[in-house]
Design a protein around this nucleic acid. Structure first.
Lengths: 225, 225
DNA sequence: TTTAATCCTTAGAATTTCCTTAGAAAATGC
DNA sequence: GCATTTTCTAAGGAAATTCTAAGGATTAAA
């Protein structure tokens, strides 16, 4: 990990740099905000740490400036005292975290890690399958029909997912048993029937239109009507 | 630095003045609150130090008075006894810090420096996350629900922070383990469950509405209902 | 060092889900 | 219609998952 430290107290810089290096964190530093902004614009850092009070651009203005320039590197601001200041609520300049001096080195380290992770974190992709007025969110495991949320157990959800992924096609019970239950051989079990039943109770019964239809002697289909 | 000292004990004034002068701090002083207010209104000070019990305007009223007049100079109140009520009142009235006699001179000096710095500093923003009737102050590590303060241990706080940062989204235990505990591998541990339990006891049990909900087979969500 | 607070593991209790069983209902073919 | 086959459904025990209490380990503070 590589960070930029903006701080004018020489002593603080020295200690921090040493401590961070010991944890395999590379540290560039600037003694004032202007130099810091300059460096932030021309290098890639995982995190920027800046004291609020430094010569030149202060921590707030630095953050604002960087954000305007499109730099999204996480910024951690340091301040001198634990102010009980009820005047300003919220962090509007775009800084990502905040630490009050004196702080524990461990705490700083933890925040650094959290921040560097956040910077790289790709936005959570939404995996959503739909069928008519119905949608299922594969990430949050939510199932919604006509705007109403319906709770499904993991197995029910898996079965429903299989249906919705193969909507309109007739699916045999053997196929379902294999794909959803991993049962490859002939079996006397009727789990599939039982679970189709569970699903119907939750997903079709409370509604006018049914979507799971049985095809006698063959299996089931997910379709309108 | 230049300060105003309001104190009626002549001896204390003398020692203080001498001590402060040695540290390059200029001291004006007043023997009673009325005179002190007068001086504060007509001069520029970095910090005002006032004993709570002085003739005329007492420390509280003095502070209130100055704040009403728009004077934002940091005020440090001194009191003879360690009364928590006084402290609360003092802060409500707009005082910035508080020191109980007897105090170490060194401590006074440190607070003075901190306060004078704050006076020049831009207002410190609080990093506050909210969810419904709940708020957590990342700076002061305070957690408040329905106006009641709840003590959380650091780990509990971190977990709660993760929940509140991802409110409404279903979060898996693996994700929590990774992001809050830094556990990246499969593990048999149930720390997450245990800590969700701790959190619930403090944060949900005493209240009507629950906010942490388990999604069986998946994880947890922070949401209303 | 002692004390206290926090953290984490363990193990059993409680809850939820899963799957089997068995009989009821429905569809099919004669 | 009646026997046969297939599907549906209710019930309950097994299995898995989650919850919770208790105590030992670790860390920080006095």
């Amino acid at each position: 990990m590589k960070i930029l430290l903006i701080e004018d107290e020489e002593k603080a810089v020295k200690t921090l740099k040493k401590g961070l290096n010991e944890h395999n964190i590379e540290v560039d530093f600037a003694f004032d905000g202007d130099k810091g902004a300059e460096m932030a614009l021309h290098n890639e850092y995982d995190v920027i740490i800046s004291d609020i009070i430094v010569p030149g651009l202060n921590g707030f203005d630095l953050t604002k400036h960087l954000r305007q320039k499109g730099v999204k590197t996480p910024v951690l601001l340091l301040t001198a005292l634990n102010a009980t200041d009820d005047k300003v609520l919220g962090l509007e300049v775009g800084a990502d975290d905040y630490l009050t001096k004196p702080y524990e080195f461990k705490e700083l380290l933890a925040r650094l890690k959290a921040l560097s992770r956040r910077g790289k974190e790709p936005p959570v992709p939404k995996l959503i399958l739909t069928f008519g007025d119905t949608e299922m969110n594969l990430t949050s495991k939510e199932f919604i029909r006509e705007g109403k949320k319906i709770e499904l157990t993991p197995k029910e959800f898996a079965l429903m997912e299989y249906f919705i992924r193969h909507q309109g096609r007739v699916i045999s019970k053997a196929e379902i048993a294999e794909k959803v239950w991993d049962i490859n051989f002939e079996t006397t079990s009727n789990v599939v029937e039982v679970y189709v039943n569970y699903l119907r109770n939750k997903v079709d019964k409370p509604f006018e239109k049914k979507m799971i239809h049985t095809v006698f002697g063959v299996g089931y289909v997910l379709k309108d009507e």
